[in-house]
Amino acid sequence: MSDDELQLFSEERVSNDGNDSEDMDEELITPQKLLQRIESAWMNEKHSPDILPFQGEMVDLMLGQLAHMEENLEAIDRNDFRKITHKMELERIRFIVASYLRCRLQKLEEFTQHILTEERKRPPDKKRLSDAEVKFAEDFFESVERHFQLLALRHIPPNQDDITKRIVRPNLMSNVFFRVVKSCGTVVNTNDEEVELLEDSQHMLPYQLISDLIIKGDIQLI
């Protein structure tokens, strides 16, 4: 991958006379740094029991970079060994992006109602799903409900209809293994013991105890 710089535009919410507005804050990011961020988001999503905030800007930038790399590959002679290595790297990056998106879709399918319910409670600047993911989850939920109604619900006795109200939720107290990116104080584990989170240290703790630190980027799931 070349070292040419890309422009990354990240949204910042600023207060202006009591009203929130959106401003575009320009940041320069190299393709290598972009790849590191995508890999980090992928690993976090893969090992997290709950769905995390969607890294839409990172995905869009990487897809643009992939298209640029494909164009550059066309200019290389097919007998040039560099074309083989660059193509392998291209496929690796494409796999990471696809796997990241697939992980999110799997969670949406497994915990649809839970994720949609929690998403509706969040303020606009704390949303975790893209508009496309919300649409997919809502359509998927309606389809499953309709299918379930036709096949099973109408045959369930009225005194047992409470089973239809059960919501499948992720186990937020499941243990996750992580590396501390930036020292961030201490947390109290399930045994009421303090665990000091020092930079580059590795720990295993229940996800719910450190979920905010994952979103902040202070720790990395591994």
Rank of each mutant, 00 (worst) to 15 (best):
M1D: 12
S2M: 09
S2R: 11
D3L: 13
D4C: 11
E5V: 12
E5C: 05
L6E: 11
Q7R: 14
L8E: 11
F9D: 13
F9Q: 09
E12F: 04
R13H: 03
S15E: 11
D20C: 03
M24Y: 15
E27L: 12
E27Q: 12
L28W: 12
I29E: 01
T30F: 07
P31E: 03
L35G: 05
L35H: 05
Q36R: 10
R37M: 03
S40G: 02
A41I: 09
N44W: 00
H47Q: 12
S48A: 13
D50Y: 08
D50T: 10
I51H: 01
I51M: 07
I51L: 15
L52C: 00
L52A: 02
P53N: 05
P53E: 03
F54R: 10
F54K: 02
Q55M: 08
Q55I: 03
E57A: 06
E57F: 01
D60G: 10
L61N: 14
L63Y: 07
M69N: 10
M69C: 07
E70Y: 06
E74L: 06
E74F: 07
I76G: 02
D77W: 08
R78K: 14
N79P: 01
N79C: 08
D80M: 00
L90A: 08
E91A: 11
R92W: 04
I93E: 06
I93Q: 04
I96Y: 09
V97D: 06
V97H: 02
S99W: 04
S99H: 10
L101H: 05
L101F: 08
R102W: 00
C103S: 08
R104L: 05
L105N: 08
K107F: 05
E110W: 05
F111K: 04
T112N: 14
H114A: 00
I115C: 01
E118V: 06
E119C: 05
K121L: 08
K121F: 09
R122A: 09
P123R: 01
P124V: 11
K127I: 12
R128P: 02
L129K: 01
L129W: 01
A132N: 07
A132L: 12
E133N: 00
K135I: 11
A137Y: 01
D139W: 00
F140W: 13
E142K: 13
E142A: 09
S143G: 06
V144I: 03
E145C: 05
R146A: 12
R146W: 05
R146K: 15
H147R: 07
H147K: 09
L150V: 10
L151T: 10
A152V: 12
H155S: 03
P157W: 03
Q160S: 15
Q160A: 13
T164V: 12
I167D: 00
R169T: 14
P170F: 05
N171L: 09
M173C: 09
V176T: 11
F178Q: 06
R179N: 06
V180Y: 00
K182C: 01
K182A: 11
S183H: 04
G185V: 04
V187D: 15
V188Y: 03
E193L: 14
E194H: 10
E194W: 02
V195G: 08
E196H: 11
Q202M: 10
H203S: 13
M204Y: 01
L205G: 01
L205Y: 02
Y207I: 02
Y207K: 01
D212H: 11
D212E: 15
I214Y: 00
I215A: 05
Q220I: 07
I222F: 07
I222K: 14
I222M: 14
